[in-house]
Structure formats: C-alpha cells, structure tokens
C-alpha cells in the first residue's frame, strides 16, 4: 500500500508575525485563557489530579499477572509450560514437580515472571489451558530499585489469585 502524503508547507511570516512580540503576547493570552478557565470552571478540565484521582480502566486492561486457585486454595497451574512456551518475551520460568496426589500429578515448584521483560501482551493468559494465569488483576507493575525485585514469584502471583468459575480438568466427566 502506498501511504497518502499530505505536504504541509511553512507559510511565510507577515510583518506583525515577524516582529515576535505580538506573537508572544498572543501565546500568553492562550495560556492565560486556559489557566483561568480551569481555575474558575473545574468541570471540563482536560487533565486529572493523579494520583488522587484515577481514570477508570477498561476491564480488558492487562496488569500484573496472578495465578488462580483451586477450591482448596492450592494453585490451579499444572506447570504445563504453555504460557512460557508462548510468551514472546520469554520471561516466564517454571520448574515443575510431582504432586503427591496422582489426580493432580504435576504442579509448579517455582513460577517466576521477569516484569522487566514482560510486555503485558496477555498471550500467557490465552495459552493457559487451565485458567490458571491471568493478567486481569488491574494492578500496575511497581517501580523497583533493583532488577531482582522485578522478578515476581509463585507466592506473589498467588497472593492476587482467586477462584475460577471453570471446573479444573475441563469438561471431562
């Protein structure tokens, strides 16, 4: 596809414009107009007083990851590595271990996400066959002082977890 190009030429300055002072005054008038309007009629102000007031996020907004829980509070994740395989940033590191209950069989021994690498694409959530990982926590990644602090672990991921409405193990009867 050929992009449409619109040439915006620079019009030559006329005499008053080239005097500089008149344009300066005009600019200050604009600034003042906005200043007083915001000051007197605060309703339609374009900016927000962040962080006291926050703009509501879309429910689809992708924030910090969380790991969902089974009924008994243990992680739903079965360490299948679908999310880490799919992750385009390659930032999920999972080590699996054997679960003593053969009906569960496989669980993560450790689950780490490097938030400095994560691009919050949400592919991990889409790849997960168990509704175990989600990026719907609505929590921002926090600034950190060191790289190590940007790696979140199993306990942290589970702390934001909650129960899923889907039955673990799919629709198998």
């Amino acid at each position: 596809m050929v992009a449409k190009v619109k040439n915006v030429g620079q019009p030559p300055l006329n005499l008053t414009e080239s005097l500089y002072v008149t344009e300066l005054v005009r600019g200050l008038l604009t600034t003042n107009r906005h200043f007083w309007r915001n000051w007197l009629r605060r309703k339609d102000t374009a900016t927000l007083e962040y962080p006291d007031r926050k703009r509501p996020y879309s429910p689809r907004w992708r924030g910090l990851h969380r790991l969902m829980l089974r009924e008994d509070g243990s992680p739903r994740c079965v360490a299948c590595m679908m999310c880490s395989t799919h992750c385009p940033a390659n930032c999920i590191t999972i080590v699996a271990r054997e679960h003593p209950d053969p009906a569960i069989e496989k669980v993560p021994a450790s689950f780490e996400i490097d938030l400095l690498k994560c691009i919050f694409c949400g592919y991990c959530e889409e790849a997960c066959p168990c509704d175990a990982i989600r990026v719907d926590s609505g929590v921002h990644a926090q600034p950190v002082y060191g790289r190590d602090e940007a790696i979140i672990d199993l306990a942290d991921l589970l702390s934001r977890g909650s129960q899923s409405t889907s039955k673990q193990g799919g629709r198998s009867l």
């Binding site: 079965v78 299948c80 679908m82 069989e105 198998s172």
Partner: peptide
C-alpha cells in the same frame, strides 16, 4: 482417554 495433555509428558 483422560486427555490430560497439560500434565502429560508425551504432549
């Protein structure tokens, strides 16, 4: 068949 591919090493 259980189709538990996520925890199956053969997957």
């Amino acid at each position: 068949h259980p189709v538990d591919c996520p925890i199956c090493d053969q997957a």
